[in-house]
Write a protein that binds this DNA or RNA. Structure first.
Lengths: 161, 161
DNA sequence: CGGCATCCTTAGGGATACTG
DNA sequence: CAGTATCCCTAAGGATGCCG
């Protein structure tokens, strides 16, 4: 790769962390299934019903989410019932919650129903409303237009090769 | 709507702010175009090249983004050149930056290149790295599993009808 | 209940060629 | 440079029916 800079755009296309994340959760039904999982949904037919997708689609997406390690399939048994499987969020999956909160927040602001938001996200400990915010390592709050995007380690290293 | 609770799932499907947001930015190329816009890309062919999509697709998505009010088309003129149009992020579009930061952050953690992240997001004022975090209105930091999702005004009002 | 198989329709997107 | 027009392919997703 002698002339890397000429390929910078294409390289960024495939190596951007946003693009890689979207490779995993980049479609509507996948994100809505994760929304449900984060709200406590665990059973197959409830996922399909609450997201509003058909069972074949739910089956395919859930299987992919398990394969990607965002959901875990876990046997459980209600007293007196037979054993069933449920889908629960893994740590890897739970770390997408800020994405979901940020998406919800934008929708509440720019695409809300006249009646107001349909759900309210609260801090479990104190009940206050939860928001996704930007903050820098020095502790400052950061506005959307207060960020600079600069080459990171991966890009700099690739440039040296 | 006498028996609203029976339709709760379907109602949530169409009235969820996450779903509404995804109606606007729910596909890969749209989000990647917004990534570019947030990084300062303004010209048509650069959008297409950097996102890695064909011109027809870029044209269609950019047009939709302008129609949805996330991008604004603005004439500009470099000294000695003829007037051109550029696409710039509106306030409405800029408020999706937390979503982009959260997506990038997840990718850096769970799908990073061996060489490390390709870009680094810095606070313009101090240069420290920027993260998307959850915070409650009382000022507490909130972990992904520290949230409760409860019915909001829209859902409660609909229930009363 | 929790799926999978099949069939069909639509939307996303690439390639190529062309225009103002 | 900034698109549009055309054509074609593939992926996403609904409907229906079947199975352990």
């Amino acid at each position: 790769m002698t002339d890397f800079l000429a390929d910078r755009d294409a390289w960024l296309t495939t190596n951007c962390s946003i693009a890689r994340t979207l490779d995993v959760v980049g479609n509507r039904s996948t994100l809505l299934l994760l929304r449900e999982a984060s709200m406590g949904t665990r059973r197959f037919d409830q996922f399909a019903a609450r997201v509003g997708i058909s069972e074949p689609v739910a089956a395919a997406r859930l299987k992919q989410l398990v394969a990607d390690g965002l959901l875990e399939r876990r046997p459980y048994r209600e007293p007196g019932q037979r054993t069933r499987d449920e889908y629960v969020l893994t740590d890897k999956g739970a770390q997408l919650v800020p994405v979901l909160v940020a998406l919800r927040q934008w929708g509440d602001t720019w695409a809300a129903d006249a009646a107001g938001p349909s759900v309210r996200v609260e801090h479990h400990d104190c009940g206050a409303e939860v928001h996704a915010v930007l903050r820098c390592a020095a502790g400052h709050d950061v506005e959307p237009d207060g960020i600079d995007v600069r080459p990171g380690p991966g890009l700099l290293r690739a440039n040296r090769d």
